[in-house]
Design a protein around this nucleic acid. Structure first.
Length: 182
DNA sequence: TTGTGTTTTATTGCCTCC
DNA sequence: GGAGGCAATAAAACACAA
């Protein structure tokens, strides 16, 4: 900025526009943010301003409007991001739980596979109270289990009799397998 | 009252369009 | 090449806490 212009600026003591002037400019801006020359000249005449001042006001107003719009968009994007981050964290935890569950199921599946392989050997021995029993082909695992429980006298009533499906045999990894010794 | 931060008016330099 | 727009910036005016 030249010193000449600086002097002019200092001497001419810039004043803020009146409320009425601002209101009129704002109203025009709402309908036309880039008014043509003749409209700016009309506004200047009506408001007692220089056309140059009106042009500068619109220029500055467009800049303010643009930066406010950017702020709004930023806050919207930030809000969306925060929501997505929350959803991501919830899904991450759910995924973690499912991975653990899958590992347990895989272990259980491995145990079942071993059982089937051992069935095929056609020789199953059960060690109950130091007695060793062999399980014939026609016996199911549940039958053997029930027999073992009966042998131990653990079945106090008929309702305690359970099948393979209803028992927790497969749920306790390794717990039920202790009954079998091959 | 004064120091400081914010808002508003104005300038400058660059770019695009006709 | 001139007119007009935009980004960056200066500087005056204003708001407000200490």
């Amino acid at each position: 900025m030249s010193s000449n212009i600086k002097k002019i600026t200092k001497n001419s003591r810039r004043k803020r526009f009146s409320d009425e002037q601002i209101k009129s400019l704002e109203t025009t801006f709402e309908s036309e943010s880039r008014p043509e020359l003749h409209l700016k000249q009309n506004l200047a005449n009506n408001l007692g301003l220089q056309p140059r001042q009106v042009a500068i006001w619109f220029q500055n107003k467009r800049a303010r409007s643009k930066s406010k719009q950017i702020e709004r968009e930023y806050s919207m994007l930030k809000s969306n991001y925060d929501n997505l981050a929350l959803q991501f964290e919830a899904l991450r935890k759910e995924n973690q739980a499912l991975v653990i569950q899958a590992q347990k199921l895989r272990k259980m599946a491995d145990h079942s596979k071993n059982d089937v392989e051992n069935d095929n050997k056609n020789q199953i021995k059960i060690d109950i109270s130091s007695h060793e029993l062999c399980m014939p082909d026609y016996l199911e695992e549940a039958d053997v289990l029930n027999m073992a429980q009966i042998a131990e006298g653990s079945l106090a009533s008929p309702e305690n009799v359970c099948s393979l499906e209803s028992c927790t045999f497969l749920d306790n990894t390794g717990g039920g397998a202790e009954w079998w010794e091959f």
